[in-house]
Design a protein around this nucleic acid. Sequence first.
DNA 1: CTACTTGGCAACCTTACCTCA
DNA 2: AATGAGGTAAGGTTGCCAAGT
Length: 247
Amino acid sequence: MRESSPTEPDLGLSLDLGLAISLPHPVALVFSSDVDRSSETQAFHRGIDVNRPPLESTECEDEAGVSSPNSTVSSVSGKRGDRETNCEDPENQPGDSRGMSDEEDGENSRKKLRLSKEQSATLEETFREHNTLNPKQKLALAKQLGLRPRQVEVWFQNRRARTKLKQTEVDCEFLKRCCENLTEENRRLQKEVRELRALRLLPPQFYMHLSPPTTLTACPSCDHRNMIPHGPIGYPTSSAMPAARDL
DNA sequence: CTACTTGGCAACCTTACCTCA
DNA sequence: AATGAGGTAAGGTTGCCAAGT
């Protein structure tokens, strides 16, 4: 919805959120006790078990959003935490196939959800189509996967974060290579200048037969600057090769 | 019409757990 | 078996936006 966050530094880097990144490892559903998690403890004290499997998700959560993607009209009042409480019914967990650990039987055990391969694959597929979900899509996907809408929402949030991180890494690597290339180019051009200056001290017949300077190379982002016709001593125009201007 | 309130959401940060080398 | 790193689910915070008052 929002194009950029005010807290997000605008580095001028393009973030291709449509980038498909496969999950690095298979996932399996595992539950274990997690009694020390403060946030979940807080949730517990509010009567919330964040890891309860979904129950009648089509009726109990996010149904408000079905009206329209960006609608803020909601039949469910309250912020996130309140939303969570609306449909949690500890007595009605579906005994689905997503797997439970041995500790699952503990009364107050906190469960750590791991998505199944199938769930992850479906989420990935959906993410490739659109990296954000409107409430209706979220609800449908949650129902399809047997997850709570909140879980789908969280997965998409984290997925977007992962995508952005990956893309940032790619961009950084790209800029790093650009910098290296330009540094090397600068070095080479300076050397060329020194050589040419030395040659100018000689009569023309000593340097007129020399081959023209090497072709200027640049990083892919500067590809359009490549193959620019060189001047008498092989310099591109100043605008085409900023790094060479400081010679 | 303007100002304020409220609720939803995305982005971001953080935590806790799991898996694997 | 112990351990540290990396991945991931999920909670909390912040800021923006739209709708309502």
